[in-house]
C-alpha cells in the first residue's frame, strides 16, 4: 500500500465522516433539547436533497438561489415536524416520541417514493465548471465536494459549540434540555426553545442533504443509511456533546474507509458497527460522555 493510496483512502474517510458529522449534529442537537433521539434526521437530509432537485430541475430556479430557498422550506418543515410529531407527545416518556420519529421517517420515505418516484436523481455539483470536479495533488484526487463538506462541517462545528456554550439562547436551550420544569420556573419559554431546536436541526439536515446530493445521487432511500451511521457516530462520540458527534463521525468514516482498503470492502459497514458495539460494552456514554452521566 503506497502513500498516495493511503492518502486517498484517508481523505475519503474524513470526507464521508464529515457527512455523518453533519447529520449527527442534528441528532445531538435535538437530543440535547428534548432527551429524545430523532430517527427521522436522515430523512431531513433526503427531503433537503429532493427540495434542491425540485427547485433546480422542475422549477428551473438558479442553483445558488435554490439552496437558500430550500433552507427556508426546511426551516418551516422543521417547525411543522415539531408541531406534528414532538409537540403532541411532549409530556410522555421518551419512548412514544422515538417511535413517532421512526414512524415519521417511514412516512417521509414512502411519501418521497410516491411523489418523486423510485428512479435516482442527479444534481449538478456545487463547484461547477471543472471537468473532473476536483484536482490531483501528490497522487491523491481531491474532490471539491469533499472539501466543501469538510469546510461546512468545520464551520458548523465551531458555530454550534459557540452557540451552546457562549450565547444566552444556547444556554436557555441547554437548561431546557436538562430540566424542563426548572427552566420553566426560571422564565425560559420551553416550547419555543424546543421549536427552535427542531427548526435548526431540520436546517442542518437539509443542508447536509444538499451537500451530499451531487456525490450520492438523490433517492428516497438515501436518508436511511445516513441516519443509521450518524446515530452510530453519536454513540461513539457520546450523545449530548457536539464535539463527541464530530469526533465520533470522523472516526467512523476513517475506520470504514481504511478497513475497506486494508482488510476487505465487504465488511465495510461491519467495522463501524463493531466499534459501536465495543463502545456500548466498554464506554456506553461515549468519548465525551461525562455530561450525560451528570444529568442522570
Amino acid at each position: 500500500m503506497n502513500l498516495a493510496i493511503f492518502g486517498q483512502n484517508l481523505l475519503a474517510g474524513v470526507a464521508i465522516g464529515g457527512v455523518y458529522a453533519m447529520v449527527a449534529l442534528g441528532i445531538v442537537l435535538i437530543y440535547k433539547a428534548t432527551n429524545v433521539v430523532n430517527f427521522a434526521q436522515g430523512e431531513f437530509s433526503m427531503l433537503g436533497a429532493f427540495g434542491l432537485v425540485t427547485l433546480t430541475q422542475a422549477m428551473h430556479i438558479n442553483y445558488y438561489v435554490a439552496i437558500p430557498l430550500v433552507l427556508v422550506i426546511m426551516a418551516a418543515f422543521g417547525l411543522l415536524f415539531e408541531l406534528g410529531v414532538y409537540f403532541p407527545l411532549r409530556n410522555r416518556t421518551f419512548l412514544p416520541v422515538i417511535i413517532a420519529t421512526i414512524g415519521a421517517s417511514i412516512m417521509f420515505q414512502n411519501g418521497a417514493l410516491a411523489v418523486f418516484g423510485a428512479a435516482p436523481q442527479k444534481v449538478a455539483p456545487m463547484v461547477q465548471g471543472t471537468a473532473t470536479g476536483g484536482f490531483t495533488a501528490g497522487g491523491v484526487f481531491f474532490d471539491y465536494h469533499y472539501l466543501v463538506i469538510l469546510a461546512v462541517t468545520a464551520v458548523l462545528m465551531g458555530f454550534q459549540y459557540f452557540f451552546f456554550e457562549h450565547t444566552l439562547l444556547g444556554k436557555k436551550m441547554q437548561a431546557t434540555s436538562q430540566d424542563k420544569d426548572m427552566a420553566r420556573l426560571l422564565g425560559i419559554p420551553v416550547a419555543s426553545m424546543i421549536a427552535i431546536t427542531f427548526i435548526y436541526s431540520s436546517l442542518l439536515g437539509g443542508l447536509s442533504g444538499m451537500l451530499v446530493a451531487p456525490i450520492f445521487f438523490v433517492t428516497h432511500r438515501m436518508g436511511g443509511t445516513l441516519g443509521m451511521k450518524a446515530f452510530a457516530a453519536s454513540i461513539i462520540g457520546g450523545f449530548g456533546d457536539v464535539r463527541g458527534a464530530i469526533i465520533g463521525a470522523l472516526s467512523l468514516g476513517i475506520i470504514e474507509a481504511l478497513g475497506a482498503a486494508f482488510i476487505s470492502p465487504v465488511y465495510k459497514d461491519a467495522y463501524g458497527f463493531l466499534i459501536v458495539i465495543l463502545f456500548l460494552l466498554v464506554r456506553p456514554q461515549g468519548i465525551f460522555g461525562e455530561k450525560v452521566a451528570e444529568k442522570a
Binding site: L11, I16, T225, A257, A260, A261, P265, K268
Partner: peptide, 10 residues
C-alpha cells in the same frame, strides 16, 4: 461491496 455504498476508494 455492500449495496448502497457511497465511497469506492477502497
Amino acid at each position: 461491496f455492500n449495496t448502497g455504498e457511497k465511497d469506492f476508494t477502497g
